Computed example of a mutant assay.
Amino acid sequence: MRDSSHKPESATEFPPEKRLKAPNTQLVDAGIATIPDMETLRKCVAYENAHQNRTQILKQLEWRAAELRDEQE
């Protein structure tokens, strides 16, 4: 289980707009795959809903949420 008091650097270096507003799909995919925690994931979902609302990106975020939940168990 991860120590939730420690924020990974990637959470602050790569905010939702950098993760999801990349110039190509491979970078967006990598941005989603490297989401380190549920807080960052929620911010990404909120950003996507407010700005782009792309169904496929939201689906990928849903899959990443499931992976994070599995990692916590």
Rank of each mutant, 00 (worst) to 15 (best):
1 M>G: 09
1 M>E: 10
1 M>W: 07
2 R>V: 06
2 R>L: 10
2 R>P: 06
3 D>Q: 02
3 D>Y: 04
3 D>F: 09
3 D>C: 12
3 D>N: 12
3 D>I: 05
6 H>S: 13
6 H>C: 13
6 H>G: 02
6 H>N: 14
7 K>W: 07
7 K>T: 15
7 K>L: 08
7 K>V: 15
8 P>F: 08
8 P>T: 11
8 P>C: 12
8 P>K: 11
9 E>D: 15
9 E>K: 11
9 E>C: 08
10 S>R: 11
10 S>G: 11
11 A>V: 04
14 F>G: 02
14 F>W: 11
15 P>K: 07
16 P>D: 00
16 P>W: 03
16 P>N: 04
17 E>G: 01
17 E>I: 10
17 E>Y: 10
17 E>L: 01
18 K>C: 01
18 K>G: 00
18 K>N: 07
21 K>E: 09
21 K>N: 11
22 A>T: 00
23 P>K: 03
24 N>S: 10
26 Q>P: 08
26 Q>E: 12
28 V>W: 03
30 A>I: 01
30 A>P: 04
30 A>K: 04
31 G>M: 01
32 I>S: 00
32 I>R: 04
33 A>C: 10
34 T>C: 09
34 T>Y: 02
35 I>S: 00
35 I>F: 03
36 P>G: 01
36 P>N: 04
36 P>W: 02
37 D>M: 00
37 D>N: 05
39 E>K: 07
39 E>D: 08
40 T>L: 01
41 L>F: 04
41 L>P: 05
41 L>W: 06
41 L>T: 07
41 L>S: 04
41 L>N: 06
42 R>L: 07
42 R>G: 07
43 K>N: 08
43 K>I: 00
44 C>N: 02
45 V>G: 03
45 V>M: 06
46 A>S: 15
47 Y>M: 12
47 Y>C: 10
47 Y>D: 15
48 E>Y: 06
48 E>T: 00
49 N>K: 15
50 A>N: 10
50 A>R: 15
50 A>W: 04
51 H>V: 14
52 Q>R: 13
52 Q>Y: 14
52 Q>K: 12
54 R>L: 08
54 R>T: 07
55 T>V: 08
56 Q>H: 13
56 Q>S: 14
56 Q>Y: 12
57 I>R: 02
57 I>L: 02
57 I>P: 03
57 I>F: 08
58 L>G: 09
58 L>S: 01
59 K>N: 14
59 K>F: 12
59 K>A: 15
60 Q>Y: 01
60 Q>L: 05
62 E>A: 09
63 W>V: 11
64 R>L: 05
64 R>I: 14
65 A>Y: 07
65 A>T: 05
65 A>E: 13
65 A>C: 06
66 A>D: 14
66 A>T: 14
67 E>A: 12
67 E>V: 15
68 L>I: 15
69 R>C: 11
69 R>G: 10
69 R>N: 14
71 E>L: 13
71 E>N: 14
72 Q>G: 10
